[in-house]
Write a protein that binds this DNA or RNA. Structure first.
Lengths: 238, 238
DNA sequence: ATTTCCTTTTTGTACGGACAAGTTAATTAA
DNA sequence: TTAATTAACTTGTCCGTACAAAAAGGAAAT
């Protein structure tokens, strides 16, 4: 029979992760040194380093030889697609407007992924946002998630206006991965109007499923991007 | 002054990587056990495991508790965009036709990335391919790389018809990362003809720069994808 | 023939120690 | 004051050991 013993390095890893998520270890600050953690948890550097290595792989920290382990600003959405110059840049004024407040609805068949039985048995929470760059609407974003997995969150409660930051800091939910499908399609009348473009203009349609650290919680997204001015960009390394 | 000492784990890592790239350790086979490597390299499991951990992170192997370390089929292009059902699937007949043989030309200004001085000072190698799915042309692909970084390779010499496999197995060049820009654009007359679609149809335009393990070698790509039948898909995990 | 048990092999976790290498800040020498 | 040196601290590499946990295969019992 499986024993499922608790692993010491995993406990330390989760402890530090929680402190990061709740801003006890704020972004850009340095964690206590490895030997500090050794004393704190009554263990050896081998085990502490294993925990830190895991957090490094998960993207919570970066290590600097001779200096320490630094907490990184979370929520770069891994290698996800982002608008050119979006993340961490001040080239453009990016603004987000919630055009449909989170509300409970039936699942929308436009979601490009098969739902689990668990999800199908539940209603879902839906909200819509529009992303503006330099006061121009560029991305129309529809979002869904299963009501039985997570309660509705009012947009005024979003931490720094970000849904993902809210999940991390308020619910300790992390994005574990994502799958996307991309298509180039002509703009429908509805979308053309919302993005202020002419009917039929080629736009980028992206369907996303985010996998989270909660096994039964997936986030579904349906994005329409006007790429005439700003391209969508992503990058991967190592 | 920096000493740049050779690291034992790195030597072992590179040794195993080379054996994988040259098929001495073929895909799906199991590597010698960790203790075998300890004897072979006169070291301890700590060091061997560090080497294997690096190969795991680089995606060359997977580890199976109680069984061993298995060599994985390389060339999934990391998290790169791939045609839906493309990688490792037999749902569709995928065929690649080289429409322009690799030849030496001047750099094309359509490349959406700034070139380094080194690259600008050299001519470049260019070739064009068309990807077919079920005998339908779906992707038109232009490729460039600097001539002073890598010689031209004739398409008949591609290992299993794959340019990336050739780089890995014949030149020991690995893809270290990539940056992409995506746009939804109307098909030009030229591209519409080559993809067998009507002029003006929305198509997905992707500009890619691949970073390789050779510091001065970048691969540039310019792709035009007809996404009406088959979506472009990608996923990220962990 | 099938199940159960045990042994062997292999990877995973953890301990404890030693020294190397990079960073920072205080101290010393010019 | 400025530059060089030193000391203290932190992460990186590596050694050697021990036991746990998972997988595989063979032996014994049913």
């Amino acid at each position: 029979m499986p024993v499922n013993k608790i692993k010491k390095y995993h406990q330390i890893q989760e402890y530090i992760k929680k402190r990061i998520q709740t801003q006890k270890y704020p972004p850009d600050s340095y964690l206590p040194s490895e030997s500090d953690f050794c004393v704190q948890f009554g263990t050896t550097r081998t085990t502490v380093r294993k925990a830190l290595d895991e957090l490094l792989k998960e993207g919570f920290i970066v290590k600097e030889h001779g200096r320490g382990s630094k907490v990184v600003e979370r929520g770069k959405y891994l290698g996800l697609l982002s608008i050119k110059g979006f993340s961490g840049s001040t080239d453009y004024k990016v603004r987000t407007k919630v055009t449909v407040e989170p509300k409970i609805v039936e699942w929308d068949p436009v979601i490009g992924f098969p739902l689990s039985e668990d999800e199908k048995s539940s209603k879902c929470v839906y909200f819509q946002r529009v992303r503006y760059i330099d006061d121009q609407p560029v991305v129309l974003e529809n979002n869904w998630y299963a009501l039985n997995a997570l309660e509705p969150i009012r947009s005024e409660e979003f931490v720094e206006g970000s849904f993902f930051k809210t999940l991390s800091q308020e619910y300790l939910i992390e994005i574990m991965g994502a799958e996307q499908e991309l298509r180039s399609v002509p703009a429908s009348r509805d979308i053309a109007e919302k993005l202020g473009i002419t009917f039929g203009t080629p736009i980028l349609h992206i369907s996303i499923r985010f996998r989270t650290s909660w096994p039964n919680l997936n986030l579904y997204g349906d994005l329409y991007c006007n790429t005439t001015e700003y391209a969508i960009r992503n990058s991967y390394f190592l």
